[in-house]
């Protein structure tokens, strides 16, 4: 009997507690935003987004090393990266954001947002946090091609130019190597009588140089 009454009183009082909670919430300011009329950024303060908001991706090109980790991490293969080595004869001497010397031009960095599932795996994989979620989440458009975003700072001509410079450098190096080789051969022929050990080591270095140039 005591139990029974206790039970009733407890049930009743817990209901009152619940009602108190909802009553307090009734007068708390709302958390939602009248979205198309009021942009969430206006309300939350610009560049403030909820943590883990998976919005449109943004690539901060000065930070990107061109390591292609993001491309590999992407489960739907929507990132396409093509890099071009920075030629040493290039007049531009680009630096990374942290002041290191840039090794690769990003001649192509495309993300296809039509495919992207906004999983955020690329942002985790990136060693320099160059690829991040932006605060922009409105990407509906009338043409699917608009969703293919090019992040590379270069247009086609610039890419061609950079490639040409690189090719020139390769050519120069090859010529130089050839010249070196020829010079070496010449020298060898001239110094036919000299020590055989020196000659063989010369050959090897020039061969190494050739291989390197080709691979680039």
């Amino acid at each position: 009997m005591i139990n029974y009454l206790k039970n009733i009183i407890k049930g009743f009082s817990t209901i009152l507690v619940g009602m108190k909670v909802t009553f307090i919430n009734l007068f708390r300011p709302n958390v939602t935003v009248q979205y198309p009329n009021v942009h969430p950024l206006v309300r939350a303060g610009s560049d403030k987004m909820p943590d883990n908001a998976r919005n449109k991706l943004n690539v901060i090109i000065p930070k990107c090393t061109g390591c292609k980790s993001c491309e590999k991490a992407c489960p739907v293969n929507c990132i396409t990266i093509e890099t071009t080595k920075v030629a040493s004869i290039d007049t531009e001497k680009p630096l990374m954001e942290d002041g290191k010397k840039r090794v690769f031009w990003l001649s192509q960095f495309d993300i296809d947002f039509a495919k992207c599932c906004f999983c955020g795996l690329c942002t985790i994989a990136c060693p320099t946090s160059a690829i991040v979620h932006s605060t922009d989440f409105e990407y509906s458009c009338y043409d699917r091609n608009e969703l293919l975003v090019h992040f590379s700072p270069f247009n086609k001509e610039q890419v061609a130019e950079k490639k040409r410079i690189l090719a020139e450098e390769v050519k120069q190096k090859a010529e130089k190597a050839l010249a070196d080789k020829q010079a070496a051969e010449k020298a060898a022929q001239e110094q036919n009588i000299t020590d055989s050990k020196i000659k063989s080591s010369d050959d090897q270095t020039s061969a190494n140089q050739n291989i390197q140039n080709n691979s680039n």
Binding site: T22, N25, L26, F27, R28, P29, N30, V31, T32, Q34
Partner: peptide
Amino acid sequence: KIASFIQLKLGPM
């Protein structure tokens, strides 16, 4: 409206 306010929403606007 009450339903929305209790859930910290705005309700029909």
